[in-house]
């Protein structure tokens, strides 16, 4: 079986609103698949339907060949998947070991407790109560518990949200190890860097629909803003000030889309602009297309509080 997950025309309706609006996608075995989207895009609902935590309104979903919605098949699915929610919580007064032991009892077959403790490097905390663990250790425990049944598919919901960079790096390494051991991983994240770093394939969701799907590079290249030249403090150069208008400046930075600019034969060549900037002592940067650019172009611009302002707006 090539696909771990297959989703066909999935619809989830609440009242009269389609939270998930007829999406279809497949996840190949052994890859890290990331689902991206702003709040309310429908990604959590989609994931929870796949995890057999929510009912679907219409469409069909298959996990490892088992049909979501069928009682007997759902039991099989639950035996074969693991999940780690955002901000993993366990029983506060139980130790790390006791919490892992508890979850191990829910499965007819499970890995050894010591093996899991060792794999996620939490042996020295095995007798520490959950309430005394730091955020990073809690997430590592969550990851450890999600693999106690040696799952074929692992669902990770924003696994590094709120963690410091060191803890985030540790989780990334662990996810990579899990991927290398052959597990299929479905990831949701708000960190584009994380998705670019971990994911093999990405689906971008907006308003219940999938608006783009492919590898991070493919999405960044296709939907991103292209390569850009950024010159900071351009107003100090008379020649560069003549190039500036309201469409290609942000503050005191001149930003030129190199592909678009080069196609205009009447303008000053890029190499000459760079020479002017260097001669006038200005800071020059070249920026490659990023997933974040593509994401923002696809799903819209967001304000400081994460609210969607408008969609498919060119970002600088």
């Amino acid at each position: 079986m090539e696909y771990a997950i297959e989703v066909f025309n999935l619809v989830k309706r609440y009242s009269s609103r389609n939270v998930v609006d007829g999406i279809s996608f497949s996840v190949r075995r052994g890859i890290v698949f990331a689902l991206l989207g702003p709040n309310g895009a429908g990604k959590t609902t989609t994931i929870e339907i796949i995890e057999c935590l929510r009912t679907l309104t219409s469409g069909s979903v298959y996990v490892l060949g088992y049909r979501v919605g069928d009682g007997r098949d759902e039991k099989e699915i639950k035996r074969r998947i693991g999940m780690m929610p955002q901000e993993f919580r366990a029983l506060d007064k139980l130790t790390v070991r006791e919490n892992i032991e508890l979850f191990s009892k829910f499965y007819d077959r499970h890995r050894g407790i010591d093996e899991v403790l060792k794999e996620f490097d939490i042996e020295e905390y095995s007798n520490v109560r959950f309430e005394r663990l730091s955020g990073g250790l809690r997430q590592r425990l969550g990851l450890a518990i999600s693999t106690i049944n040696d799952p074929e598919i692992l669902f990770l919901d924003e696994p590094t949200t709120g963690l410091d960079p060191a803890s985030r790096k540790q989780i990334w390494d662990m996810v990579k190890r899990l991927k290398n051991s052959g597990k299929t991983i479905v990831l949701t994240s708000h960190y584009m860097e994380e998705v670019e770093h971990l994911a093999d394939e990405v689906a971008v969701m907006s308003k219940g629909r999938i608006v783009a799907m492919g590898s991070p590079y493919h999405i960044a290249s296709r939907y991103g803003t292209g390569r850009r030249l950024v010159i900071k403090g351009y107003s100090r150069s008379r020649a560069l000030t003549e190039l500036a208008d309201s469409n290609n400046t942000v503050g005191d930075a001149l930003i030129l889309n190199m592909d678009e600019y080069s196609s205009n034969k009447s303008s000053i060549p890029i190499t000459e602009i760079v020479d002017i900037a260097i001669r006038d002592g200005l800071e020059v940067q070249f920026r490659n297309p990023s997933l974040e650019d593509a994401f923002l172009r696809l799903v819209g611009r967001m304000d400081d509080e994460g609210r969607l302002l408008d969609s498919r707006t060119e970002q600088i």
Binding site: E48, E51, C52, L53, K75, K78, R79, I81, M83, P85, Q86, E87, F88, R89, A90, L91, F103, F106, Y107, D108, N149
Partner: peptide, 13 residues
């Protein structure tokens, strides 16, 4: 509230 119920629901329990 803590999302632990969902975590249990995702197991064969």
């Amino acid at each position: 509230r803590k999302g632990m119920l969902k975590r249990l629901m995702s197991t064969p329990l």
